[in-house]
Design a protein around this nucleic acid. Structure first.
Lengths: 256, 256
DNA sequence: CGGGTTATTGATGGTGTTCAAGGGGTGTGG
DNA sequence: CCACACCCCTTGAACACCATCAATAACCCG
């Protein structure tokens, strides 16, 4: 990672990314290798015995998704579930007239694809080059039935996701534009910390429009708020993301 | 249930409610009786064997909550989980400055109280007289570990809740005020149908402020929209709720 | 009947949207 | 290497939706 100085003379990380590639980089049907998996410790497959991991590995398939490419679409038969091993995805629901709601972003360690239905109820698109561990849904559920720990971990995961969703409802329903953007920046940064370690530099692989669609705002509003924060030296523009200069101010804006 | 005619000569149900009481109505420590439980078929305890139900029943406690009384508060130690057997509750998160977000309403058959944390991350208040089946959390989770079906059902439930939460994000993030109210009325009516059977009469045990705080609107906006719909004969004012006269129009307003 | 709470209705205003134009980076082809 | 196109982002000006403020009305329960 190259380090350079910006116009203001502040040291910044020139390149920020979410890449944590590992395992084979070949085509679809290749097995994933759990032993070298860098997200294993916090993915749903964590805390499984060596024997169980081996069984899980036998069900796994390595998947690569190019930037701006869908992994699956809302309405598709929900045949697979995935663990993200590197990259980032945008999860969204669409209205008939084109309005979009980005319900979340997935990053390494996240588990996606579960649906109460036989079809996915949201779409998933890769924001950058992304690798995943794919499991056939029915087989995965069968295994989770046999391996107590897995189902339990799955349930803990779902409960956690639900809590995040509820927190986001508060943001969407009761927060002003500036609070929404601040809440997003801080929570995204916090989630990244688990994967990349804590850093003031926050990669934003999603576009402004994606952030706007996540926060129930327009791209103009998001742009204006970020521009103001840059003028006020609360954040710094970094290619591919921002650098948080004044975490305190952001925390004050959210103030919950 | 008394039936009368309103000013327009339309037959309406004068009383609408969610009461489905059954079992003992006494104090805290009384057991619940699954055999006579009216929500058993669609609660998390459904699809359990007679033997397992008996075991579950041994863990259960009957709880009564009076209208406008909290069942638990956000931040309380999450010691219990509950199945609602009658009545209705409001689930909400609060911001420091008094803003509220009602993240949902619970009705008979619903399962509440699970948290990814050791404390509840939202508050639950009874809207009307409410009865619940209480389980000590740790014991319930222990049993669910021993009884495959229960944990699985719990997970299905969590996944379903997550999907509902995601749909509500779309409502909060991307829908206009009128669409929000229409979406709420229709979805609330649909949920009620599972418990009370389909009916054009929709009880609204929550107040206008609760609806507003659920939809990210103000009480005035909700009031104005409902008033307009009453003038336009899309709905009819009924004590304790509304009667849907023109479901089509409401569906058109949502139009997704 | 009276006090308090909740809901309705009207007038005004603000936050964020919409509409519109311009800037900046990147990739491609001449 | 520059020209051009394209996409995304930024910035400005006008507007609209819904919030806010305020007053009244309906309701509930004592």
């Amino acid at each position: 990672m190259t380090v350079v100085l910006d116009a203001a003379g502040i040291m910044i990380d020139r390149e920020v990314d979410l890449t944590m590639a590992g395992g084979c980089v070949s085509a679809e049907s290749c097995r994933s290798v759990c032993a070298t998996c860098r997200v294993r410790l916090f993915a749903v497959c964590a805390a499984m015995s060596e024997h169980d991991i081996a069984e899980l590995e036998r069900l796994s398939h390595h998947v690569e998704v190019a930037p701006r490419t869908p992994l699956f679409l809302a309405g598709d038969p929900a045949q697979s579930v995935y663990t993200v091993t590197s990259g980032a995805l945008r999860l969204q629901r669409d209205l008939a007239d084109g309005r979009r709601q980005v319900i979340g972003f997935a990053m390494p360690g996240d588990f996606i694809g579960l649906s109460p239905d036989t079809t996915y109820n949201f779409s998933a698109d890769a924001l950058i080059q992304t690798t995943l561990c794919r499991f056939e849904r029915s087989r995965f559920m069968t295994l989770s039935r046999a391996r107590q720990g897995l189902l339990e971990r799955l349930h803990v995961h779902a409960t956690h996701e639900l809590s995040i969703a509820q927190e986001h409802m508060v943001v969407l329903g009761r927060r002003r534009a500036e609070e929404r953007v601040a809440a997003f920046l801080l929570s995204w940064r916090k989630r990244l910390a688990r994967v990349n370690g804590a850093s003031a530099t926050v990669p934003l692989p999603m576009g402004r429009q994606d952030i706007a669609d996540h926060l129930g705002l327009t791209i103009e509003t998001v742009s204006r708020i970020l521009a103001r924060w840059m003028r006020e030296r609360i954040i710094l523009d970094v290619p591919g993301g921002v650098r948080v200069l004044d975490q305190e101010r952001l925390a004050d804006i959210v103030a919950d």
